[in-house]
């Protein structure tokens, strides 16, 4: 379990790229529910990033809170604010 900075920097870049894509998509997508789902995906990539940084505790929390529960709660909220609205 040692961290090697040179081993997987491509993986690092890939995750960061996906995070940027998810962040932009969450802002620009039409419809609140789809934005909520993309936010969940963003949380998942954040979680991967934490794992990659060997911060397992944080990754664990992020997976449980960000990717699972908060996505459900955001979707549950979004259904009241007209889920297919344009903004």
């Amino acid at each position: 379990m040692t961290w090697d900075a040179n081993l997987l920097w491509q993986f690092d870049m890939l995750i960061l790229l996906m995070m940027v894509i998810c962040a932009v998509a969450a802002l620009s997508l039409k419809g609140l529910v789809s934005s909520a789902v993309v936010t969940g995906a963003y949380s998942f990539f954040t979680c991967l990033m934490w794992t990659h940084m060997m911060a397992v505790d944080v990754a664990f929390t992020e997976a449980a809170v960000g990717a699972a529960v908060s996505t459900v709660i955001i979707v549950a909220t979004a259904q009241y604010i007209n889920p297919w609205s344009k903004d």
Partner: peptide, 21 residues
């Protein structure tokens, strides 16, 4: 091991959310 009150609590709460879903 990694874990603790926050994570365990969230997972336990998620189980009730799954139940109601």
């Amino acid at each position: 091991s990694p874990g603790g009150g926050f994570q365990g609590g969230v997972i336990f709460g998620a189980s009730f959310i799954l139940l109601s879903l």
